[in-house]
Amino acid sequence: MSDISFEQALQQLEQIVVKLEQGELPLEQALEQYEQAVSLARISQQKLQQAEQKISKLLQQQGQESLVAFQPQEDE
């Protein structure tokens, strides 16, 4: 399953969320869907980390500043 793209994993995650939110799945199927969602979330996180590492490496090669962690602004 790790050979799927980030976009495919995200799309599958969204589909699973819709199914789970409907609340119509039997318990066993809901658990299977949840397990698949956890796996897809891990794959997505790994792909994001890989992309971040590539970007950092490219920035370093070009002598530019490094990446800074995103800090969302709090609503006032």
Score class of each variant (00 low, 15 high):
Gln8Ser: 08
Leu10His: 05
Pro26Met: 04
Glu76Pro: 14
Ala41Lys: 09
Glu65Asn: 14
Ser39Glu: 13
Ile43Ala: 03
Leu27Trp: 03
Gln60Gly: 07
Met1Ile: 11
Ser44Val: 13
Ser44His: 05
Glu28Cys: 00
Ser44Ile: 10
Leu20Met: 06
Ser2Asp: 11
Glu35Gln: 11
Glu28Gln: 08
Gly23Tyr: 08
Gln53Cys: 00
Leu40Tyr: 02
Glu52Pro: 00
Gln36Phe: 02
Ile16Glu: 01
Glu35Trp: 03
Gln12Thr: 10
Lys57Phe: 13
Gln46Arg: 11
Val68Cys: 01
Ala30Ser: 13
Ser56Ala: 15
Leu67Thr: 01
Leu25Val: 06
Lys47Asp: 04
Asp3Ile: 14
Val68Tyr: 01
Lys47Asn: 03
Leu13Cys: 09
Ser39Tyr: 12
Lys54Gln: 12
Ala51Glu: 14
Lys47Ala: 08
Phe6Met: 05
Pro72Cys: 10
Gln45Ile: 15
Glu7Tyr: 06
Gln46Glu: 15
Leu48Gln: 11
Gln62Cys: 02
Ala37Leu: 07
Lys54Leu: 11
Gln11Arg: 09
Phe70Ser: 04
Leu48Lys: 08
Ser66Asn: 12
Val18Glu: 10
Glu52Thr: 11
Gln8Trp: 03
Ala51Trp: 04
Ser39Trp: 09
Val17Ile: 13
Asp75Thr: 13
Ile16Gly: 01
Phe6Ala: 07
Glu21Asn: 12
Ile16Ala: 02
Phe70Gly: 01
Pro26Val: 14
Gln36Pro: 00
Ala69Met: 10
Lys47Tyr: 06
Leu13Gln: 11
Gln61Lys: 14
Ser44Glu: 05
Gln49Gly: 00
Leu31His: 04
Gln8Ala: 12
Ile16Ser: 01
Gln29Ala: 11
Gln61Asp: 15
Glu24Asn: 12
Ser2Ile: 07
Gln36His: 07
Leu10Met: 11
Lys54Gly: 00
Leu67Trp: 02
Gln61Phe: 13
